[in-house]
Design a binder for these strands. Structure first.
Length: 486
RNA sequence: GGGGUAGUGGUCUAGCUUGGUAUGAUCCGUGGUUCGGGACCACGUGACCGUCGGUUCAAAUCCGACCUACCCCA
């Protein structure tokens, strides 16, 4: 295989400066660009296609579980937002508020939703009357606004797109089952679709959602050793139900408080995808989510007749693949050089490239190149569809394997505070350690190491070891994962 | 939160110190030569120099404020 060099494209190397590399890739792969509004980005077709795919997959799972899509207003009257104390305290610092409309000052300012609990639950109270109305499961796909001081494309933007599921249940058990079901959808989504192996678990009390009883999250391990909170699922308990009077009459005619959940996944996921799989040549997309899975590149030549037959043959192969259900796209642009075209497709992360020139047209073969490994080969036309399917599933699984490997490499079990800080010397990584779960201790850990508890892994929730906290030495019973957060 | 860097055709950029309407490249268009890892020639289109204000006969350039983005550190 000829060595692949990237000297001419002026893309920052991922290993040299991952932050600059990330910005370069987002812009040059055509995922998004900046707008005139602080912290708000324009999601371009290539990036939006990834979001549409996310919607398609999640919607199918939601609906199969009886979750219905609906839509609530973008404006939230301040008095509603203020009904749940912890909730308003948590979101106030980053609220955008409309004070004027129609040329007049509004009698009551309207917040632009940072999340929709309050506006939805004001209505849910009316929808839920009887035990027969439960569970109520509503989801909405929308934009929300949180005025962030520091923003990055996709990872943290002032406005972002997400889905927010909101459910109402008769009791805690039913609500908790929902919380865990949503969490499992997210875990599965990252693993099966984005080829990212995440950690899944419970957040510490100081990291939980404002107004929630408990928050669970999906955390992904990024190549630089930092953590990205990639989806969340909250058990809200009865906090909001009390504030918004969401009660029902049970089968004995007794008025009973409801238990609620909310859960969401946002366009931040796309940032995680870019960071997880991209390389020095640009984006690398897992085949399942790639808007284009195969690009068929018609190669021109000195001989006009040969070039024409190459183009015709490339069209035929593209049709074949499309009929076989492969998302294939034809590139017959002869105005740019071979190298230019290849680099553009590599930047966009298309998993498989077929190169079709006079040689292939004559021999009825195709030359294929894998985007993730740059491995190259030739296949006969009759075997093309099968070969492409093999390559696509091979790329999907090897990306996931690499992600699992990265997760293992970047997670270190530590037994003492000395070990904890030593592991973090000169690098960033996830650490698993016994922790007392005390907020004061948590703050000290953060001050000294910048790391925070990311999650208590799901299968360790019932852990009950008799040990001491890695930091303060108080009694501790469960191992938590710590890392520096994005 | 602290420190730094930068904003000039669609994109990247020279010019700024020492004020006189803007350099080059790329993209795009036309024609031609090319074509298996970012080709080339010719001609052409495209800029109220981030915004607002000040100084001046004259401001991309000097002064002030603001906006936006990026980097590094908390």
């Amino acid at each position: 295989m000829a060595p692949v060099t990237f000297e001419k494209r002026a893309l920052t190397k991922k290993s040299e400066n991952i932050a600059e590399w990330y910005n370069d890739v987002v812009l040059r792969a055509g995922l998004a660009e900046y707008s005139e509004i602080k912290g708000c980005m324009i999601i371009k077709p290539h990036g939006y296609a990834l979001w549409e795919h996310t919607q398609k997959v999640l919607n199918a799972w939601f609906k199969a579980d009886g979750v219905q899509n609906a839509y609530f207003p973008v404006f939230i009257p301040m008095h509603l937002l203020q009904k749940e104390k912890e909730h308003v305290a948590g979101f106030s610092p980053e609220l955008a508020v409309v004070t004027h409309a129609g040329g007049e000052e509004l009698a009551e300012p309207l917040a632009i939703r940072p999340t929709s609990e309050t506006i939805m639950y004001a209505t849910f109270g009316k929808w839920v009357q009887s035990w027969r109305d439960l569970p109520l499961k509503i989801n909405q796909w929308c934009n929300v606004v949180r005025w962030e001081k520091r923003t990055y494309p996709f990872l943290r933007t002032s406005e972002f797109l997400w889905q927010e599921g909101h459910t109402v249940h008769a009791d805690e058990d039913d609500a908790m089952a929902m919380v865990l079901r949503a969490l499992e959808w997210y875990r599965r989504f990252y693993e099966e679709q984005f080829a990212i192996s995440p950690y899944v678990g419970l957040k510490s009390s100081s990291e939980k959602f404002a107004g929630a009883e408990r928050t669970y999250s999906v955390e992904i391990v990024l190549p630089d050793g930092k953590a990205l909170q990639a989806a969340t699922s909250h058990y809200l308990g009865t906090h909001f139900a009390k504030a918004f009077d969401i009660t029902y009459l049970d089968d004995a005619g007794k008025s009973t408080i409801t238990h609620q959940t909310s859960w969401g996944l946002s366009t931040r996921a796309i940032g995680g995808l870019v960071l997880s799989h991209g390389d020095d040549a640009g984006l690398v997309l897992p085949p399942r989510v790639a808007p284009q899975q195969v690009v068929v590149l018609a190669v021109g030549g000195k001989d006009e007749a040969k070039a024409q037959s190459a183009i015709a043959y490339a069209r035929t192969l593209t049709d074949h693949l499309q009929h076989a259900g492969v998302r294939a796209v034809l590139d017959e642009d002869m105005n740019h050089s071979m190298g230019y075209r290849i680099n553009e497709w590599e930047l966009k992360g298309v998993p498989v490239r077929l190169e079709i020139g006079g040689r292939e047209a004559e021999a009825k073969t195709a030359t294929w190149v894998r985007r993730d490994t740059f491995e190259k080969g030739t296949v006969a036309e009759a075997e093309l569809t099968g070969m492409v399917e093999t390559l696509l599933s091979g790329i999907q699984s090897s990306l996931l394997e690499r992600s699992e490997e990265l997760k293992r490499e970047l997670t270190v079990d530590v037994a003492s505070w000395k070990e904890f800080t030593k592991v973090l010397d000169g690098r960033k990584t996830f650490l698993r350690a016994l922790w007392c779960e005390d907020p004061t201790c948590e703050a000290e850990i953060k001050n000294e190491t910048k790391t925070t508890p990311r999650v208590l892994e799901l299968d360790r929730r019932d852990e009950r070891v008799e040990g001491t906290c890695v930091k303060c030495g108080d009694p501790a019973h469960r191992h938590w994962l710590f890392a520096q957060s994005y």
